[in-house]
Design a binder for these strands. Structure first.
Lengths: 113, 113
DNA sequence: CTATAGTCCAACCGTATGGTTGTACATGGG
DNA sequence: CCCATGTACAACCATACGGTTGGACTATAG
């Protein structure tokens, strides 16, 4: 039995992976087309190894996966993980949203007061 | 004229702020109730200064604001910024979503082919 | 088989991060 | 007025991060 509602370390990895413009761009491109690591690397003004590291961070976060295709590795975006991240964001404000909803109900004027 | 669609550095700050379990917890609590920094600090097994730093990170990201109340500073969650973050997530996969929608349309069988 | 394209990994480097302690300053209570 | 409370900030430390270069391995092309 875990203390928290969901895996906090997974959230750490996911949000950390998203906290970098290069990695977000890699994600965007990966959502458009499956690209090899070297194809991705061509797009940025940094070494191949640096891009490779960024892909590794995204992979550890579960935001992309790599598919072996001959000597190339195709980077595939994982849409589900992004949805999970969105849900994690929403969960941060559930109580707030509940209270806003409650207030709306009150304003709708159903309580006797 | 900016190259990117939105402020990448703001995204860096927001996602980095979210990439830490303590800060996410501070955000959750702040959404429940406005709390002073020392009230927040009581909840964690670390120094007051450490919690203060976490709040500062959240503040720089625009996820919370601080309101002077006598000698205390009340930490208030900024729901709008969280919505902005959610939108930023959605934007990462727009092209993907567009393609999925297109595919749905095709399957719905309206094109003459 | 050999050469090369694609990838991975380790070592290294400067800077940022997350924590600490200590000090300074403002505010409210007795 | 004086003191305790709440906050801010600087200095310091270990570790993580983002980048580099170089070396090793695998698979395809000739």
């Amino acid at each position: 039995m875990v203390v928290h509602g969901f895996d906090e370390e997974a959230a750490d990895r996911v949000f950390h992976a998203l906290a970098n413009a290069t990695r977000r761009d890699i994600l965007r491109r990966s959502f458009e087309t499956d690209l090899s690591v070297s194809q991705l690397a061509e797009a940025y003004d940094m070494s191949f190894a640096a891009v490779q590291k960024h892909v590794a961070v995204l992979e550890r976060a579960g935001l992309v996966s790599k598919e072996n295709q001959g000597r190339e590795r195709l980077v595939k975006a994982e849409a589900g993980k992004l949805l999970w991240a969105r849900q994690a964001l929403d969960d941060l404000e559930v109580t707030w949203r509940e209270r806003v909803d409650q207030m709306s109900d009150l304003l709708a004027g159903d309580s006797g007061q």
